[in-house]
Design a protein around this nucleic acid. Structure first.
Lengths: 244, 244
DNA sequence: TTTAGCAGTATGTATGAACATATAAACATA
DNA sequence: TATGTTTATATGTTCATACATACTGCTAAA
């Protein structure tokens, strides 16, 4: 607790400063191992702020299931915490990118299309509205590995002239002020038809790992509907899951 | 807003009563359509409670991403709310169980075997140690859907006489004092060979969603190594992912 | 020895108050 | 017309305070 302090002059609200502090604090091994946090009153006095403010900060972490409070006892870090891991999750393509795997585009095709019912309903748009459709064949040096089809919500304001060779989410965040928050995914397996086999350079009948996902903004409004066909021999979808 | 009121005498805390009220309130079509909620001060005065208490209640819904607040403007329901359930994550079999899907065992086979290298190394055991191997064919009334193979760490103390017809993790937790915490999963796709096709009642060459996972205890020690072969036409692996 | 009860402690609930700040709309000015 | 300016409004932040309640452990009575 020692090296932490609060800047009353900062533009950053006190409760956010405390929240930050708590996040760092609970990474310490002793708290990870079940030691009770200093109690709210103590923290408040130590930092020279009100208990309410400390509580406000801690509430956030409690909501995120990082902390559990027990009346009459204290507050401690949740064991085998789910959220910690989940917060660091990204989609696996993203993860690939981060890990420095050289993922290059074999082909990019951008069109403006009238989408089918499923997408209209998901995007909650008029069936005649055109949306940007992006098809990408991506892979490593040895060959293509995944075939993506993406549809973008018209709200974003993408056009066919957009430069899709740059990293997609950088473009969205910088040029279109879209921040990405949540995505929902469904994974299944299919076998390659002629078209997919040609694209991914595999045989007809070979297994394909198939993923649909919806990328949303912090308000849970859909941004992108994405379908990915992965060569099953090149990809394993790896997940760490925590049960409660 | 009219028919709602607060019982100051109730054992239920005021903020929970308000939370309930808000949940009902925002189901009204006008709020679903974007109408601003009554403002906090107004609600508080109307209900004869403090603004803080109203805020405490609303905070919960804001955190659940049901509501968005905008300073100087007001609070409204989040649009396009695609059922968010970010907190209660479980593996999908677990989820199935919870949702009351009747999953029955078509066949169970228990043997004690000398495992292969992969498992020895994972379990960190002597290559001659026998481990309990459990094979289960599970499914719904319409037929088998998944073929499981599980290996259990000898530390658990399972024997061939164990009753595996009962829910597995209940047995482990109650009879063997094992608590389950984390599992790591890898998912891929394969095509059915003769054996799998027969078991799952599909054709050779049909796609299969293939999952390996390691279930661990809170100390991250392996408990179970599990391989699952899912009929891809019956299963979609659904995931909600949170990015930060 | 067991148990009932009490005191200490930490969180839970609730209030009222004050001021900050973002937003939109009305208004005024160049 | 276009651009500042004011004002009303609603949420955002923060504080001090009081009492309720669940849990732990100690102590005294049965």
């Amino acid at each position: 607790m020692e090296p932490f302090s609060i800047d009353h002059k900062s533009v950053l609200p006190l409760h956010l400063q405390v929240e930050e502090m708590l996040r760092k604090l609970i990474e310490q091994p002793e708290y990870q191992n079940g030691k009770l946090l200093p109690n709210e009153v103590h923290i408040a006095r130590k930092l020279g702020i009100s208990r309410n403010t400390v509580r406000q900060a801690a509430n956030k972490l409690v909501h995120e299931q990082l902390l559990v409070r027990k009346k009459g006892v204290g507050t401690k870090v949740v064991k085998n915490n789910i959220t910690t891991k989940l917060n660091k999750w990204t989609s696996f393509t993203h993860e690939m990118d981060e890990k420095g795997v050289v993922f290059k585009n074999y082909s990019i095709k951008v069109t403006a299309v009238v989408p089918d019912k499923e997408i209209c309903s998901l995007f909650n748009i008029n069936p005649k509205t055109k949306v940007i459709k992006l098809e990408r064949l991506r892979g490593l040096n040895k060959g293509p590995v995944v075939y993506f089809i993406s549809y973008f919500h018209p709200r974003i304001g993408l056009t066919e002239k957009e430069d899709f060779s740059k990293p997609l989410y950088e473009t969205l965040e910088k040029d279109h002020h879209v921040s990405v928050a949540v995505s929902k995914e469904g994974i299944s397996a299919i076998i390659a038809n002629k078209k997919l086999a040609e694209k991914l350079n595999i045989k007809i009948g070979d297994p394909i790992l198939f993923r649909k996902r919806v990328v949303c903004d912090p308000g849970d409004r859909p941004i992108e509907y994405n379908i990915g066909y992965y060569r099953a021999d090149s990809f394993t979808y790896t997940i760490d899951i925590a049960k409660d």
